[in-house]
Design a protein around this nucleic acid. Structure first.
Lengths: 194, 194
DNA sequence: TGACTGACAGAATCCAGATTCTGTCAGTCA
DNA sequence: TGACTGACAGAATCTGGATTCTGTCAGTCA
């Protein structure tokens, strides 16, 4: 808020705040405008619709969530370890969010379902990170020859149970950690050169 | 209907019929009783509650769905092929149901969510079938040594994206077949002895 | 001059009264 | 005698009139 002019970033931050405080249903454009101390017409100056505003918030949330994983993907650990760390971090951070603040997680889950296009971008980015790890493993000879994009997709799909927000309700079950380890082991063994 | 007395099987069949015709919301105990030509009090003579009736219908549906898979699990194909056939059949039959009659599938999906206990029985049974295949593979030396129950669970979890009813909406996407093949290959390679 | 306001129409959502359903049980009837 | 009925209370669901929201735009004001 360095300037008095209403800025896109300010609107997004305030919207996140309203979402956190009051939940999805009560986060109307009017509410956001009230929280900003402006009329709702002003919000429409920066976003063409309520859907666009929500989409932008969703995109920002997913981009932040991806940052940690990008660091791991770009590390120079051996590919099998790097893959394990990446998949574990992806699961653990999502799981922590879902368990720490279920209502906020549910809010963003609903937003994600509403904005399929934004989620698709996110998935594409995640797949690119996975492909980079697979390519490193192919180059080092750790992984058996395979088309990297197909392998990345297969790994991503295989951990869907521990990634897909629709299945989040099962992440609180006691045995879930062991189950994740089981799939992780299976997946890594499936990639390794023999 | 060999006898005039109201029988449990008759009630279940009629309930399925009402569900198919009118959907979940309109399938009240009163509706089922009307379809049977009896008073709703008679239905309560055989089922203690509406939930119990719905649970019984769900159980019957899942039991039927499992029968095909049981045949494959008990076949004497080599374990890797048998596993592929089992997983493919599990995916294809569910996918066919979801695409052929989306409304009926949605009905049973909701029922499954309502009756977690019944679904758990079902999953336990499926895991037992998978474990039998894994054990065959261990005995033949096709699969690398591993605790069969852990491996069965890992395989089951890895194909969640192609099995979990909550993700059914994605089974209509064009690339889904290739994605399934990718995971199937990864999983089988993960089990194979080296 | 251009960021912002607020009145407005049509769409979406809310709420309270009316209807329907669940589960029980005393009573019927074959 | 026991399978079945139907009236009943309380819970759940529906409905349509009242309220709130979305998206637009002519007008204000700094």
């Amino acid at each position: 808020m360095t300037k008095d002019v209403l800025r896109v970033e300010t609107i997004l931050t305030t919207t996140e705040d309203v979402l956190r405080r009051h939940g999805l249903a009560k986060a109307t454009v009017l509410d956001v405008a009230r929280a900003l101390g402006v009329s709702h017409g002003s919000v429409y100056r920066h976003f063409p619709s309520k859907a666009a505003l929500r989409g932008a918030v969703t995109r920002r949330w997913l981009t932040r969530a991806r940052a940690v994983l990008a660091t791991i993907a770009a590390s120079d650990d051996p590919a099998p370890e790097r893959l394990s760390r990446w998949l574990t971090a992806a699961f653990e951070s999502k799981r922590a969010k879902a368990l720490d603040d279920p209502e906020l997680f549910e809010t963003y889950r609903t937003l994600a379902v509403e904005h399929t296009d934004v989620v698709e971008e996110h998935v594409t980015e995640l797949l690119a990170q996975l492909r980079a790890i697979v390519e490193a493993g192919l180059a080092s000879g750790d992984f058996a020859p395979t088309p990297p994009d197909v392998a990345a997709r297969a790994v991503f799909d295989a951990v869907a149970r521990f990634q897909h927000p629709l299945l989040a309700s099962e992440w609180a079950r006691p045995g879930i950690g062991a189950e994740f380890d089981g799939v992780l082991g299976l997946v890594v063994r499936g990639l390794l050169a023999r």
